[in-house]
């Protein structure tokens, strides 16, 4: 009995060691990637890098102002569409569980969440690019909005489902009509969750490249014309990274650094917002 117990304990210890080893090994590639991008990118970033468009081949200098502006415009347009639609759909799903429509739309959210981004790109190409006769920022935004939707819907739905029924009953018992209960009580109480869903979805789509390849394409010039092609941070990284020129690679490192900073900031902001707005129930 005694020696066997020893073996069993040793086995348990070894297992724990293996688990800890594997669990923490994963941070190694992450740290390598982050440090490498920061090291390569930070030297590229300066004021002129942020405010200039790319230089023609062979010339020194140039920046990513076009991509920054393009990413900003397209993410904004995508949010304007996806945020209200997503929140409303999320409210519908959490308030009407069990109905047929809710079941099928829930299914659609699941499907949408799993759709490969490249497929969204193809579809939006046929929905928008072909009818409008050319690549455009509008098409890019629609593709991004479709990618945002499931994240916003699910986070809204889950936040609202966590709110106790008693909250709704308290408002209803005061004679508050249903739509007002939603607007004045349910949404404010679930604000942190809904907001974090929005920031997370933006963090997710700001780095999406595949849906933009056949929709917004890219553009080497500073433009605000949303019916024409527009550049974006991820697209600029893709086209420069796969080019053969070293100074273009440098631009891509700089752009990667900026993109990474955006994503990191958005993630941190999400965490802080959630903490700040979290309501003690």
């Amino acid at each position: 009995m005694e020696p066997k117990l020893g073996i069993r304990n040793v086995k348990s210890m070894i297992f724990k060691g293996v688990i800890i080893f594997f669990a923490f090994l994963i941070t190694v590639p992450l740290i390598i990637v982050l440090l490498y991008i920061i090291k390569q990118g930070i030297t590229q970033v300066n004021w002129s890098f942020l405010t200039h468009v790319p230089a023609p081949t062979g010339e020194k200098g140039g920046g990513i102002a076009n991509a920054l502006l393009g990413s900003f415009i397209m993410v904004m347009m995508a949010s304007v569409v996806a945020v209200p639609v997503g929140i409303l759909a999320g409210i519908y799903l959490s308030e009407n569980p069990g109905t047929k429509l809710a079941y099928y739309s829930g299914l659609c959210v699941d499907i949408l969440q799993g759709v490969p981004s490249i497929v969204v790109g193809i579809v939006v190409y046929f929905w928008v690019v072909k009818p409008l006769g050319g690549f455009s920022a509008i098409a890019g935004s629609i593709a991004l909005a479709i990618m945002m939707l499931p994240i916003i819907i699910r986070s809204t739905e889950q936040t609202l489902k966590l709110l106790p029924d008693s909250l709704k009953e308290a408002a209803l018992s005061l004679g508050v009509p249903y739509h007002r209960v939603i607007i004045k009580v349910i949404i404010p109480c679930g604000f942190a969750g809904i907001l974090s869903g929005i920031t997370l979805s933006i963090a997710r789509i700001i780095g999406e490249t595949a849906p933009l390849l056949f929709t917004a394409l890219g553009n080497n010039f500073l433009t605000m014309k949303i019916t024409g092609p527009m550049d974006s941070l991820p697209h600029v990284i893709f086209s420069y990274a796969t080019s053969p020129y070293d100074d273009w690679h440098d631009l891509a490192w700089g752009a990667s650094f900026i993109l990474l900073m955006f994503v990191l900031t958005l993630n941190i902001v999400t965490k802080l917002l959630t903490r700040k707005w979290k309501i003690q129930l």
């Binding site: 106790p164 008693s166 909250l167 009953e169 308290a170 009580v185 404010p188 109480c189 309501i279």
Partner: peptide, 8 residues
């Protein structure tokens, strides 16, 4: 049954 003040 349970006190339910509005948390917001």
């Amino acid at each position: 049954q349970r006190p339910n003040p509005f948390p917001n």
